[in-house]
Design a protein around this nucleic acid. Sequence first.
DNA 1: TCATGTGCCTAGCTAGTCTAGGCATTGCCT
DNA 2: AGGCAATGCCTAGACTAGCTAGGCACATGA
Lengths: 115, 115
Amino acid sequence: MSTGPELLRGHLDALLLGVLADRPAHGYAVIERLRERSAGAFDLAEGTVYPALHRLERDGLLSSRWSSEPGRPRRVYSVTRRGVSALSAHRGTWRSFAQAVDRVLGESVLSEAGR
Amino acid sequence: MSTGPELLRGHLDALLLGVLADRPAHGYAVIERLRERSAGAFDLAEGTVYPALHRLERDGLLSSRWSSEPGRPRRVYSVTRRGVSALSAHRGTWRSFAQAVDRVLGESVLSEAGR
DNA sequence: TCATGTGCCTAGCTAGTCTAGGCATTGCCT
DNA sequence: AGGCAATGCCTAGACTAGCTAGGCACATGA
């Protein structure tokens, strides 16, 4: 990740559900889309994404099927109904989190200049 | 934390520097200020905050002295010059991170409604 | 005197992410 | 034909930041 390590912690599920809510995709494509959508900020390793996808499927937020299209076999993931509502919850959580950080980081902007 | 576990990962240093940049404080007060400023979103355990303060001091971003005022002994932390610039860097990192998450989470808002 | 709030601290756990590997297919270039 | 890069899947184990759960001491007021 170009934004620095560790920042992602706890937000990955939301991001994966976010890209997949748009339209289904296989793991490799998820990584690319995440990189594109974030303008390069999220450049995740496969070892980060695949286990997370598996976990989300195990928890019923994603479902997968093997693509029947010719060429390399791909596991295509879709967001389930439960996944959609989980994403919606994640969005709310993210908003409060971001707002809280903004408040803490923002309120001392003025005092910063006077140092 | 009321916003959920794990989300804080990697953002704690920025938050601590943020509250202390306003004015120096001792650990216990840092926790209270964080709770107030975030409107209850960040309600951190002492076991989270104290080790982090120690680490920041070890890294030269904070300095501490024992309060000479009557009453209970308190270790009061101030942000050092290096801490101020670290905070500024953290602000930049936070902005790109938040922007990237917003982009990933935001772009599928419309498609969410049609489900 | 006994509980509650304040205030400091740390050892060890937990869990999500990352590292570092492995494997197979496709397509291109020489 | 051979080789290499890109695609595409996977997992075991390491790493580490934050959390749990405990300890200690003083102040205050009931």
